[in-house]
Deep mutational scan, measured.
Amino acid sequence: GRPPQPKSVEDLLDRINLKEHMPTFLFNGYEDLDTFKLLEEEDLDELNIRDPEHRAVLLTAVELLQEYDSN
């Protein structure tokens, strides 16, 4: 089946190999997954995450988090 739900933002970023963005998220108040899963493209602009590939991966991760919630 699906991988288990990540336990933290750090756990999530670790899985998608984008842990380099951890300080950015923490500094901007994305300390838990409840906050993280509200992330949208405009937020990525504000966080200055410009890499299109990173953005795509992050937004996909957000969608997956929302799916875990609805099940």
Rank of each mutant, 00 (worst) to 15 (best):
Gly1Leu: 13
Gly1Lys: 14
Gly1Pro: 11
Gly1His: 11
Arg2Val: 07
Arg2Lys: 10
Pro3Trp: 11
Pro4Asp: 15
Pro4Ala: 13
Gln5Arg: 10
Gln5Ile: 12
Pro6Thr: 05
Lys7Val: 11
Lys7Gln: 11
Lys7Asn: 11
Lys7His: 09
Ser8Met: 00
Val9Gly: 01
Glu10Pro: 09
Glu10Asp: 06
Glu10Trp: 07
Asp11Glu: 14
Asp11Asn: 05
Asp11Gly: 05
Asp11Ala: 05
Leu13Asp: 03
Leu13Glu: 06
Leu13Tyr: 01
Asp14Arg: 08
Asp14Asn: 11
Arg15Asp: 08
Arg15Thr: 11
Ile16Tyr: 13
Ile16Phe: 10
Asn17Arg: 05
Leu18Gly: 01
Leu18Gln: 05
Leu18Glu: 03
Lys19Met: 12
Lys19Cys: 08
Glu20Lys: 03
Glu20Arg: 06
His21Asn: 04
His21Gln: 04
His21Arg: 01
Met22Cys: 11
Met22Ala: 13
Pro23Asp: 15
Pro23Asn: 14
Pro23Tyr: 10
Pro23Arg: 10
Thr24Pro: 01
Thr24Ile: 08
Thr24Cys: 07
Thr24Asp: 05
Asn28Lys: 08
Asn28Gln: 05
Asn28Trp: 06
Asn28His: 14
Asn28Met: 04
Gly29Lys: 00
Gly29Val: 00
Gly29Asp: 02
Tyr30Val: 10
Tyr30His: 04
Tyr30Asn: 02
Glu31His: 15
Glu31Cys: 13
Asp32Phe: 03
Leu33Asn: 03
Leu33Trp: 00
Asp34Pro: 05
Asp34Asn: 11
Asp34Ile: 03
Phe36Gly: 05
Phe36Ser: 04
Lys37Ala: 10
Lys37Asp: 03
Lys37Trp: 00
Lys37Ile: 02
Leu38Ala: 12
Leu38Val: 07
Leu39Asp: 03
Leu39Lys: 00
Leu39Gln: 01
Leu39Gly: 02
Leu39Met: 09
Glu40Cys: 15
Glu40Leu: 08
Glu40Arg: 15
Glu41Pro: 12
Glu41Asp: 08
Glu42Cys: 10
Asp43Cys: 04
Leu44Phe: 08
Leu44Ala: 03
Asp45Cys: 08
Asp45Tyr: 07
Asp45His: 06
Leu47Trp: 00
Leu47Gln: 03
Asn48Lys: 09
Ile49Tyr: 01
Arg50Tyr: 13
Arg50Cys: 13
Arg50Asp: 12
Asp51Leu: 05
Asp51Thr: 07
Asp51Ile: 06
Pro52Met: 07
Glu53Ile: 06
Glu53Ser: 11
His54Asp: 12
His54Thr: 12
His54Trp: 00
His54Met: 07
Ala56Pro: 03
Ala56Phe: 05
Ala56Arg: 15
Leu59Met: 13
Leu59Cys: 05
Thr60Leu: 06
Thr60Val: 04
Thr60Glu: 15
Ala61Ile: 00
Ala61Val: 05
Val62Ser: 08
Leu64Asp: 15
Leu64Glu: 15
Leu64Gln: 15
Leu65Glu: 03
Leu65Gly: 02
Leu65Cys: 06
Gln66Phe: 04
Gln66Leu: 09
Gln66Tyr: 04
Glu67Cys: 09
Glu67Pro: 07
Tyr68Met: 13
Tyr68Ala: 15
Tyr68Trp: 12
Asp69Met: 02
Asp69Gln: 10
Asp69Trp: 03
Asn71Cys: 13
Asn71His: 13
